[in-house]
Design a protein around this nucleic acid. Structure first.
Lengths: 132, 132
DNA sequence: AGGGTTGTTCGATCGGGGTCGTACGATGGG
DNA sequence: CCCATCGTACGACCCCGATCGAACAACCCT
C-alpha cells in the first residue's frame, strides 16, 4: 500500500501532524457466526482476556492484560476475538484499545456470553478461594 | 430425560443369560470443566449431534443421527461429548443410547447450553428458511 | 530529530485433533 | 450355531492453530 501522497501544500508545520488515526476493521454483527464465537472462546487464553475485559468494565489497552504469552501471540488472540465479533479494537495513539462487544453479542446470541463469563468467573473463584 | 428408570428388578426370564449389560463410564458433574464443554461444543459436527438430541427430546441411538462422517469418527465425537459431560451414554443391547445431560449442564453452567442450543437453532432456521 | 513504547508481520515449529479404513468385539435374531 | 447389526480400537494421515523470536512499523515525548 502506498504511503501518503503528500496532499500538496495543505498542512502544516505543526509539531503534531496527527493525521488520521489508524483504523481497525471491526466486522459488523452480520458477519460473525456461532462457530467463530465458539472457536474464539474455546481457547483458555482468549477466555481470560475476555474475562479480564469484562471485569475491568472499561476498555483496556493490549499491553495491560495479565497473561503469559508473547506479544506476537497476544496480537494473534486479539485478532481472533475481533474477527469473531467478541471485541472491538481501535487505536489511541500508539496503543490499541479493546472493548467488549457484549451488547452485539447479546443481540445475536442471547445469553451466551453472559453464561460463559459467569461460568468462567465461578471456576476462577473456585481456584482463587480454595476449598475450606 | 432418562426414559427408563432401570428399576433393578427388571431381570427378565429371557432365554439369553443376558449377563451384565455393558457399562459406560459417565463422568460425574464434578469432573467436567468449562474448558472441556467449550472444546466439545466448538466442533460443528458435535454441535449438530447435540442439537438433534435436544430436538428429538428423547434418547437416541448412535446410528440414528443425521451426520456425514464415518462410524469411527462418530464414535470419537460421542466420546468427547460424554467425557465433557454434555451427554450420557448407556447400552441397550447392541445399541448405544445417548442422553442429553441438560439438567447437569444447567446446574454447573447455568444458561450456557440453552443459549448455545438456541443460537444453533436460530442459525439453522436462517439456513433452512432463506431470507425473504 | 532521536528514542522509547507499543503493537504487527513473517516465518518456523510443533502438537493436537478430526478424519478415515480396516479389523475386531459384543449382541440379538433366525 | 451362525450371521447380520451395531459400535469400538487402532493406526495413519493431515491440516490447522497456538506459540515464539526477530525484524519492522507507527506513534508520542523530550
Amino acid at each position: 500500500m502506498g504511503v501518503f501522497p503528500f496532499a500538496t501544500s495543505l498542512e502544516v508545520t505543526v509539531a503534531r501532524p496527527r493525521a488520521v488515526p489508524r483504523r481497525v476493521e471491526n466486522p459488523g454483527p452480520e458477519e460473525y457466526s456461532l462457530q467463530g464465537v465458539l472457536e474464539a472462546l474455546a481457547d483458555p487464553v482468549r477466555r481470560t482476556l475476555v474475562a479480564q475485559l469484562s471485569r475491568a468494565d472499561e476498555d483496556m489497552r493490549c499491553g495491560t492484560f495479565d497473561v503469559r504469552v508473547s506479544a506476537s501471540t497476544l496480537t494473534h488472540h486479539f485478532t481472533v476475538l475481533r474477527e469473531a465479533g467478541v471485541i472491538r479494537q481501535y487505536y489511541v495513539g500508539t496503543s490499541k484499545m479493546n472493548a467488549l462487544r457484549d451488547a452485539d453479542m447479546e443481540a445475536r446470541f442471547p445469553g451466551l456470553l453472559q453464561a460463559l463469563l459467569a461460568a468462567e468467573e465461578r471456576e476462577r473463584d473456585a481456584v482463587v478461594a480454595p476449598a475450606r
